[in-house]
Design a protein around this nucleic acid. Structure first.
Lengths: 264, 264
DNA sequence: ATGCTTCTACAACATAGGTTATGGTAGAGG
DNA sequence: CCTCTACCATAACCTATGTTGTAGAAGCAT
């Protein structure tokens, strides 16, 4: 039996009890493979499932009326996709793949069941949502108040940083499978200008545009260029999770107590 | 005794049981008044509380190294502030006021307690987080792929739309207390260009820059200019909440059962 | 009133980034 | 092998928006 990708992901945050693990596994259908450039859904379609990315790269986007598009976020292995549609019956963004990938679907409605059965998992889900927000926030800053050069550097560095929490190999030079059109649509720039900017950064020996992607040569220096401050990726959650774990124990105790009594 | 502002806010989403109401009220200290331009916190400070806005306007921002700043979101009465720091021990953005205001604080740590005691409230909190994300997403699109004119129109219209769900009077012309510097910092433009753009929109009879704010004269036409699609503000959540309510009933039943037995 | 400060207004000039166009390369598929 | 399709590269030219600077109006403290 394969190791569930969502369990692996959650154990990045906190050790899980056997019960939590069973619970998580229960809401996961087996992973499914998709080809590069597949569109998993378009904006407007009904949204009934979340997905976890177990292999490969994905991105969400929004098509504009004038034919342009905005890329909103990139997903790497271990990320959860679609959480933000919790409050919506329809997809508010499209999802497509940057590489061949494997994703696991699980139904939205079962999320509340999980909440009811494990306080710890409920808290972790909430934290993941908070982290997603922090990333979007930083992306906002990026679009609003940085030059093209800084934008590109910051975007690349952030993704490199996120990859570190993954089982993707990040030793040596890192190659990100991000074509220049995608960078343009993510950063609100034109492809031409992305190209100009990459050339500049290449001349400074910071990166190397390769076919269909970018190879990072000097992450440290890129962080410098970007004015990158990793604070928004470093959650500090142990307090909260301890609290949740204790509360869970109290609940369990109450239940067991009642059960014991009723069995006497 | 005053009506809790957070209860009012939550009842926008769903009717609450008496128990839910008590629970919510329990985590709320009484509202406190703050003066216009107060800074409630700076980025980097420890974050121990959430706030609900019961009166007035607030905004979050991020100061950049080069002295510029990015305004990230505006808050109107009924909004919850600080949820995104759930996963962080420190503030990742600053919070300041646009007008005299009243806010209620409640401690972060108690949120997990609420989660454990009411599935419905837990779900509503999650939905609010999802909605916040949807708003940030739209703001991203705004910054990435729209002209100054569209940006301004979209931003103003969105806020007008959000005000409708509030007990603020939205009949007649709406005056938003947003100075031009704030618009600039929110939309990634210079004050001068904001000024130019407002002048244009004023010539088209769409709005009227008033002292320290903007009066909207023709929201319909502004929506046209912005290409505004309100979908991202219209959650569809009844399914999820029904589900949560049922699950809560099942849990309660199990508990009561056990209790009854133990008291026999 | 007097002077602060904050916000608005507008002009002249500068530039980052957009647009259009053309050509190149590498892989995918018949 | 040839064609198609992605993606990349570079050039010439254009414009939306930024920068700097100056000035006036409105609110606020003394």
């Amino acid at each position: 039996m394969h190791t569930s990708c969502i369990i692996k992901h959650f154990e990045n945050y906190s050790p899980l009890t056997e019960r939590d693990r069973t619970l998580l596994a229960s809401l996961e259908k087996s992973p499914r493979a998709y080809a590069r450039n597949s569109v998993l859904w378009e904006q407007g379609e009904p949204s009934r499932h979340f997905y976890t990315v177990s292999k490969g790269w994905a991105y969400t986007y929004r098509n504009m009326h004038d034919g342009t598009r905005q890329v909103l976020d990139i997903y790497v292995p271990g990320d959860i996709v679609g959480l933000r549609e919790f409050a919506f019956s329809h997809r508010i963004t499209g999802l497509a793949l940057l590489s061949d990938a494997e994703l696991c679907a699980f139904p939205k409605t079962r999320l509340t069941d999980v909440f009811s059965q494990s306080l710890l998992l409920c808290n972790i889900f909430f934290m993941i949502a908070a982290r997603d927000q922090a990333i979007l926030l930083e992306r906002l800053v990026n679009l609003g108040r940085r030059s093209a050069r800084e934008k590109v550097a910051h975007f690349l560095v952030e993704i490199a940083e996120r990859l570190k929490k993954t089982d993707v190999d990040t030793s040596g030079n890192l190659r990100l499978p991000l074509p220049q059109v995608l960078l343009a649509d993510a950063l609100g720039l034109s492809v031409v200008h992305i190209n100009r900017t990459l050339k500049e950064l290449k001349n400074d020996n910071l990166l190397l545009p390769t076919n269909g992607g970018v190879e990072l040569l000097n992450i440290k220096a890129l962080e410098e260029v970007a004015g990158f401050d990793p604070g928004y990726l470093e959650e500090n959650i142990d307090d909260m999770l301890d609290h949740a774990r204790e509360a869970q124990l109290r609940i369990d105790a109450a239940f067991t107590n009642a059960d014991d009594n009723s069995e006497e």
